[in-house]
Amino acid sequence: MKHIFRGALLAAALAAPLGAASAQVTDLKIMAPAAPGGGWDQTARSMQHVLQSDKIVGNVQVLNVPGAGGTIGLAQFVNGSKGDPNALIVGGYVMVGAIITNKSPVNLSMVTPIARLTGEFEAIAVPANSPLKSMADLVAALKADPQKVSWAGGSAGGTDHITAGLIAKAIGVDPTKINYIAFSGGGESLASILGGKVTVGISSLSEYDAQAKAGKLRILGVSSPTRLPDAKDIPTFKESGVDVEIQNWRMVAAAPGITPEQKKTLAEAVDKMVKSKAWTDMLAQKGWANTYLAGDAFDAQLAKDITSTQAILKDIGLAQ
């Protein structure tokens, strides 16, 4: 690995005097802090594909470092890539929560955030024969007895759990009282909803889409700020009177300790990638929404997300 790294540095050094105006990234290592196949891995590999096919970056490698909600990979990235202008890491909202609940020694302030790339909105679904017809019904049921409403979603402390907590809080129900049942895979939790084993399911909208179209599930609401173009008939939480807005976003960050020029070069490469047709096609294929946000606006949003996550995890009793 070392000689590749050195080669990259050399290449960068050679390239610098030639084109100071339009600095080019020739080599890039993208770390996906997860096992092959998951969302972060797919994000990293999609980036690799688009960056190479559109010749934005000559050579891109993806490295998988799985474990503990991405915090293992993050730790390795923070410690191993300091000042490396050719290293990127993919991450996302789940990482924000994992850093807090796992009491991770490293956090996102130790890397150089570049941009938010994609996002998925959360949705609440019930089986087609459920007595709950709308968000209002769910709110009423929660207010009557939060214990009697069982929620099926992903692992405790993840985006699904956080959203459930935020909803409870928004309608004045004690978030520690929610009856959240964690499932390890999307398939298992979906099966428990379809089988009527739980009251409601909470997950990203794409997980429920096919079932809803087949008439097996009813989607009560979605966590986007306004109605989604692909799902115009689904009301947002906000318009149903539940003031919750959240997205499970994915981001890309650079190594700690790089210079502002190096950051700018990387940000430009990412910007070029996001604006390419290949990227748009890729997102459409994967069903991911383009929620690109870069520069200071992203830094501000990230800080806001971290603070609010900290607060809600404390409220649902998962962090001190």
């Binding site: 092959p36 196949g37 998951g38 895979g185 999307g186 398939g187 298992e188 979906l190 099966a191 379809l194 096919a210 079932q211």
Partner: peptide, 12 residues
């Protein structure tokens, strides 16, 4: 039949 990936392989 349902689009449920119930194992790592199925997810991939």
């Amino acid at each position: 039949t349902l689009g449920l990936p119930t194992s790592a392989t199925a997810a991939i």
